[in-house]
Design a protein around this nucleic acid. Sequence first.
DNA 1: CATCCATTTTAAGTATCCTTAATTAGACTA
DNA 2: TAGTCTAATTAAGGATACTTAAAATGGATG
Lengths: 220, 220
Amino acid sequence: MDVSSAVEKFLKTIYNLELRHQKASGSNMASKLNISPAAITDMAIKLAGQGLINYQKHKSITLTPKGKKIALLASRKHRLWETFLHRTLNLNLDEIHVEAELIEGYTSEFLLGKIDEYLGFPEHDPHGDPIPDKKGVLPEEQAFFPISESSPGSYQIERLYFESDELNDFFTEYEFKVGDILELVLIFKMDNALLIKRNKVTMVISENIGSKILVSKLNE
Amino acid sequence: MDVSSAVEKFLKTIYNLELRHQKASGSNMASKLNISPAAITDMAIKLAGQGLINYQKHKSITLTPKGKKIALLASRKHRLWETFLHRTLNLNLDEIHVEAELIEGYTSEFLLGKIDEYLGFPEHDPHGDPIPDKKGVLPEEQAFFPISESSPGSYQIERLYFESDELNDFFTEYEFKVGDILELVLIFKMDNALLIKRNKVTMVISENIGSKILVSKLNE
DNA sequence: CATCCATTTTAAGTATCCTTAATTAGACTA
DNA sequence: TAGTCTAATTAAGGATACTTAAAATGGATG
């Protein structure tokens, strides 16, 4: 199945929303893709006709297995490009996203394979997101959880969700990276804000930001 | 001036034809770009209206200064991508061309700058073609000449024109590279074929192939 | 349960870049 | 110089991916 870069982007967006347990509604899609809601309806009708999505009027969109495979392969492109740009050009985590988004739709299978090989067939990109293999299969995953749902103790950052410009700025400015060690000192009952220690620096982050930082428990 | 990737490709094609002293006629353009002659006429009228090319019915196209600048910046993208893919992924000279062609139109100025910096601001790509700077200015060039127009003696390869699949295959198969030392032993009067020695291997190449190998004279 | 409002859809239309088929222009030849 | 042939142009149209504006829907609320 060979699809345009617009279709790849559309399916990838549904997939990413599903992953975060958000509905792929028209307005959601429109704002993520930065196009009008009417364009979403158009595309939805077209892709439903091709068996790539399940779509009923006024309902949110879900992927069919066929559509999901394309979405996974599009994610693969995206994440391999991100990893490649990070390793070679040393771009930071929000820069790699923007640039990968521009190029990924025009990448040949051949080039992608070379990039994969160069990188040593990585299983995760620099955000910690898993990279599907060339058949669209995701690597085995441990269960990670948001630091905002944890109790005091030591954790390692496993994934960072760069979901908005504000989060980009925050994670970039304070240099949050996958692999960093966090100590959750306490949770404020008032607003569920988190007092954390990282590199000997103590800071308070909101519950909302905490929900975008997935961690694993460190044995002590 | 911000133009689409199709327009960049169009202008770059005219530029490349001009460089090789070939006319940018409709049929020439159509075969280089692999689109119909009617599409060439369409695009020509449009771009003439934007002051990017000089165009009169039934005459061949030339670039205006404005169009030439865009063509040079498009060449810059192409050649920086080629150089980057060659250095990082070790793709060979015909592979880098194909892949760069696909991606180049979707590259941001930011990313291009990072690639340029990573490569150390190179002045030539792996084919030996000059890379314009970010203002579209070409580096100072020595005068190179085709080996087919030289007399017996020692030369260094300065540029290789990968102009057709056959030439791709030839240069790739026999591993011709910019920087190689060639000794031109003799020229057959019969058909102007060239007897050359390279890495202690002697071979005969046609005048046509010789015209695609630019060299500089080595002092002995 | 009727009303309201946000969301979604429909309808119509635009831009870009391409196609095929038919026509015309210009260059070359006899 | 008329005729011929090739290259280029015109005309019509199609695919894709969007837009705006108006209409419809359906879920939430009083």
